[in-house]
Amino acid sequence: MPNLELMPIGIFAQRTGLTSSALRFYADSGLVPPAEIDPVSGYRYYTADQVARAVELRQLREIAMPLTAVEAVLDAEPGEASRLIDEHVAKVLGDANAARQKAALIKSSLSDEPCLPVAVLKGPVLADAIEQVLTATARDPDMPVLGGLRVEATQEAVTLTATDRYRLSTRTLVPAEPAATTWAATVNGDELRAAVSEIRRSVLVRVDATPHGIWLRMAGREDQYCQLLPEEFPDHRLMLASLSEAVTRVTVSKALLLRVLEEHPGARLSLRVSHRGLKVLAADDEHPGLPLPAAVTGRALHISFELTTLFPAVSTAIGPDVMLDLRGPDQPVTIRSADRGDLTTVAMPVKHDRSA
């Protein structure tokens, strides 16, 4: 259909995904006026040039953008339009989080849910730990618990654990005040992420548990509520307990290893470990490896990883040097700080593309 050929409102509705009644409303609002109105019948006609604007309008309304904002986006240059869309989405997310927090308060008052004191932790330390451990989560509709953070509290420690089945991260924190009880549950990871900025700005955070969630209480700030996930968390303790002894240990500069991983050209890589040190190669062995100075004990090994598995495990390690405990090319590797063991990640290797 040539751009100047007129189409009746029914055809235009089919082309744009809008109903005829919606098009009449948007025409009356001045957002997509018809190109021509028959003076006798009152029939409305549109051109092909108007399709893109009408489709964009529909898409903006689908993200709940008000009409005044829609008009501003439709008439703006691309850069300004993108900024306005981002601004709207940020407001929607903020309003949703505020509504969720208020709903939690209302439900708590309706049911008079008892709160169980779990622990008091230093805010900045807790925020760092949440961000570090949550790198091991995954979005899986069939297993929503993989997007959660397992929290286990005793009088002596609070342990945070997450796993996506290919990687497991765990960090142990020392409470600022001893807990009065033992408690464990899996907390919604997305809601914890949303609360991190408030947690980081608080000197102390008191964690109180209810049957369906936790409250993060912070002096001078609004309490944050995070829901619990009801699904059973994978038996991470059994997995950790079943790890065999390491046959090779590598200690290497975290900064140097990360730099090599950042510059690595592929999605998969191999580590070749020998008494001469550590070399990072392409998984297919077709590209020359990048040698790194490293302290190595044990036997030589050649082990491969997905970059998306190894990089976050190394980047979240604490301290200047990272330690890798290797058990074999098909066995989990343990990655942790060489001098601080309170954050530990277990990552699964992948099969070599070619034998070493």
Rank of each mutant, 00 (worst) to 15 (best):
L74A: 03
A241F: 03
A136F: 12
P2R: 12
P230C: 08
L146K: 03
S108R: 10
R100F: 03
G266D: 10
D321M: 07
V55C: 04
R217C: 10
T135C: 12
E80A: 15
V32P: 00
T182D: 14
A54G: 00
I85E: 04
L121R: 05
R139M: 12
R249P: 01
P78F: 02
P312T: 13
A313H: 03
Y43S: 09
I9Y: 02
M65Q: 12
K122N: 11
L105A: 10
S315H: 11
G30P: 07
I335N: 02
P234M: 11
R100N: 06
A338N: 07
V55F: 01
T19C: 02
T159W: 01
V296P: 02
E131G: 09
A184T: 15
R217W: 08
T47Q: 15
D28P: 00
D342H: 09
L192W: 03
T161P: 10
R44N: 05
A99K: 11
P288E: 12
E5A: 09
T345D: 08
D330W: 05
T334G: 04
Q227A: 15
H302I: 01
S109I: 02
I11G: 01
D321S: 13
S197T: 15
E77M: 03
C226G: 10
E113H: 07
A180R: 12
M323T: 15
A98Y: 07
L278W: 00
Y43I: 06
E222H: 14
R53K: 13
E198Y: 03
V89H: 09
P39C: 04
R167K: 14
S169D: 08
P211N: 05
A157H: 08
P39I: 13
I318Q: 10
S109L: 10
T137S: 05
P144H: 07
L229Q: 04
P33M: 02
P230T: 12
